[in-house]
Write a protein that binds this DNA or RNA. Structure first.
Lengths: 231, 231
DNA sequence: ACAAAAGTGTTCGTACTACACCCATGA
DNA sequence: TCATGGGTGTAGTACGAACACTTTTGT
């Protein structure tokens, strides 16, 4: 790394791909821009990194400002740095994704002036996005799919108590393919980190399903060794 | 993303974790710094991103300046943005790793003045590195290990023609564990992308091993569908 | 009684694991 | 002839894939 520290006119930003799950569909939180460039376009929520905050802090702050949520599972997944990606200047953006529970959430409202509104959109029906945000989104969902295979991220998107069918629908929505019900249940239960509750679904007009919750303690006990392979 | 584009005094850099494989050991290319801060410390090679180049171009350029090599497999793996990571100012760094063939390589010599020299060091005997480079290195090797499981990256580190034992030693060095010879060979050959050559190892004082090469064409034919799961 | 989803086992094939000896070559 | 790594097969186990019917509940 050079030490000369040349100052040049460029800026960092954070862009967030905020995933949620609702009505059997995987959704992403978009904002409608109220300013040029890309006025009236849909975009990923994002903002500039302040000079006195780490990029992780910035990601957390920006998510909070846009959704009012703390302590979310956020994960950096890629940094985008094409020269012309922002029409007004050089902006390199670090992209994070976050997983949140939509259920029971008060409606998300942007607290910044540069957005008209925020809305959950199905990942299957996204409009063309501002800047290179379509590319950022595509990358995010690929990383999300891969990570689903080795990390218990799905539970961040579900209510605390959920049925196995809900869990399966979520997996299907993320992976974009149908899964076999029996195999899915067998596998999930075999991990041993799902805790069966003495409670059932309510308000459905058919046989009520058992509720489960994700047992974080058991998960770490089971997988702590596997996650640090060797040494 | 904000449009106001505030200019603030900060900079981007690229840091490269350059892996090589030699004498049965996984190595990484380090430079010895010739300037403050961290004068006389070992560090990862890196440099500032110019204002008119993308971060990918910057990574390619920096690798070239430090090693004289083109067309290397480079992969962005994480961006580090702690406020105090650079003692002289705010520098956010995008880290890449590269995989190169040491064999037959003319010695690597830094072409920049800020480094006294460059040297290949075994990943098992690294000194404490400048800045947060030890952390960057640790992250890189974890990503490398994971990627080894689903991408044919090992071949970038070997000479074009190699024996199965060399390939196995490389896997063992990256994964830091012993593998079973028979199982390893069976599995590798079963993929069908290794081309057996009509040639044998030379200059060894024991039974010469067959040479193989990686058949990129076959690899893509076999895995093109698997790499784009669905749609 | 009917509609709707919950819940449940078995079979098959594939892939990974563990494991030990003879072979070819150069010195 | 000896030392050194090259090269090979099999049996057991674990895991994923395919596949269909009965049960429970609310209306």
């Amino acid at each position: 790394m050079e030490t000369g520290l040349p100052k040049f006119d460029s800026a960092f930003s954070i862009d967030c791909v905020i995933f949620g799950f609702e009505a059997g569909e995987l959704k992403v939180l978009l904002i409608e821009r109220n300013e040029d460039p890309f006025k009236d376009w849909w975009a990923l929520p994002g903002n500039m990194v302040e000079n006195n905050e780490s990029i992780e802090d910035a990601a957390t702050r920006i998510l909070y400002e846009l959704t009012g949520l703390h302590d979310m599972h956020m994960e950096q997944f890629h940094t985008f740095g094409a020269v012309q990606r922002h029409p007004l200047g050089r902006v390199i953006t670090v992209a994070y994704y976050a997983l949140i529970r939509i259920i029971g959430q008060k409606e998300v409202k942007p607290v910044t002036k540069y957005a008209k509104k925020a809305a959950w959109r199905s990942v299957n029906e996204l409009p063309k996005l501002a800047y290179d945000h379509s590319e950022i989104f595509e990358t995010s969902i690929q990383k999300l799919r891969r990570r689903l295979g080795y990390q218990p991220i799905a539970f961040e998107l579900l209510p605390e108590k959920f049925t196995l069918t809900q869990l399966q629908l979520l997996y299907e929505a993320i992976l974009n393919k149908k899964l076999d019900k029996r195999n899915f249940r067998k596998k999930m239960l075999s991990y041993g980190f799902l805790k069966e509750l003495d409670e059932k679904q309510k308000g459905v007009s058919y046989r009520a399903a058992k509720l489960y919750k994700f047992d974080r303690r058991k998960y770490y006990k089971i997988f702590q060794n596997d996650l640090t392979p060797e040494n």
